[in-house]
């Protein structure tokens, strides 16, 4: 990064630190912050979409759909999220490959779980063996996103379900009395109101989501925890230009500060959003239910 870094033997303390903190390996750590942000950016809308589906399923006229919705919203109550994070990527991968195996290789009829092996034909592999590096990385990341979306979708479903019940019944009855169809009532009156009631709960889910992002590490993604652990470990002079002892405590302090800042900024942002939306609510109270 800096000119003087090329000769790392003769560096003064501050220069040494500047060089150390800008090694390509450290840049990997900084880039991995983007991974966290990307995960949040992709997961949040997916989780809200899944949450809305779950909440609507719970109000479905069909008993089967209703119980599916109930099961989805209830499962995060009984099962630790970590189980989903460990289970979903592995299970998704095997399920997809199993289906592809059955469809793409109909000639192979043997079992796929043999002893402690999972064998599918090479055409069914995901990603395909010869795919370029980024396809593999992206695939792994997508599996992690799916796991996050499922868990946080269930959290959102709980919030949205509660919010839908909180919308004053009188408003819905009024809308119906005006001759709106059930669909119109839902789209024009019920859902727009739901978001206002759901906002505090969804804000909370956002905070939990932020605090769950380091669990990416457990899914094998090279995230900030991975790089912090890797960089903080003892480095010997034989294998590094910047030998040092066990510095993990400094790196974990860094992670702690990073997350504190992140949640703190989020909290301020969400508070502003809530204030703004409630202001809008006050003016809407005149009777304009539509969005």
């Amino acid at each position: 990064m800096f000119e003087y870094c090329s000769n790392s033997d003769s560096l003064a303390n501050l220069q040494w630190l500047a060089c150390y903190l800008t090694t390509l390996k450290h840049q990997s750590l900084y880039w991995s912050i983007l991974t966290v942000l990307l995960l949040l950016a992709v997961t949040a809308p997916l989780a809200i979409a899944l949450g809305l589906s779950g909440a609507l399923a719970r109000r479905s006229p069909f008993a089967v759909v209703r119980s599916l919705g109930w099961g989805y919203t209830s499962m995060v109550r009984g099962i630790p999220d970590l189980i989903f994070f460990l289970f979903v990527p592995l299970a998704m991968d095997q399920l997809l490959e199993y289906v592809r195996h059955r469809v793409l290789c109909p000639q192979e009829t043997g079992p796929v779980w043999i002893g402690h092996d999972f064998v599918v034909c090479s055409a069914a592999k995901l990603p395909l063996g010869p795919s370029p590096e980024w396809v593999h990385d992206t695939y792994g990341f997508i599996l992690a996103v799916v796991a996050f979306a499922i868990v946080f979708g269930a959290f959102c479903a709980n919030v949205i379900h509660g919010a839908m019940n909180a919308v004053p019944r009188t408003q819905l009855e009024t809308a119906r009395a005006y001759g709106l169809s059930p669909r119109q009532v839902m789209l024009r009156v019920h859902l727009p109101q739901t978001w206002i009631y759901a906002l505090p709960g969804l804000s909370n889910v956002w905070m939990i989501l932020i605090k769950a992002t380091p669990l990416l590490f457990l899914m094998g993604v090279e995230d900030i925890v991975y790089w912090a652990k890797e960089l903080g470990g003892t480095k010997s002079a034989r294998f590094s230009d910047f030998p040092h002892g066990d510095w993990r405590i400094y790196y974990f302090t860094g992670l702690l500060v990073f997350y504190l800042l992140f949640t703190w900024v989020s909290q301020i942002g969400l508070k502003r959003l809530t204030d703004k939306v409630s202001r809008g609510q006050a003016t809407m109270a005149g009777g304009k239910g539509g969005a």
């Binding site: 880039w31 983007l34 990307l38 990603p127 010869p130 795919s131 370029p132 396809v135 992206t138």
Partner: peptide, 26 residues
């Protein structure tokens, strides 16, 4: 990780053309 993030971004934009490159061993 840099390549990874860009790759992930690209993948959001590009949906097909994923399986074109030459034979590689990881």
């Amino acid at each position: 990780m840099k390549t990874f993030v860009t790759a992930a971004l690209v993948s959001v934009l590009a949906t097909s053309a994923a399986f074109g490159a030459g034979h590689s061993v990881r």
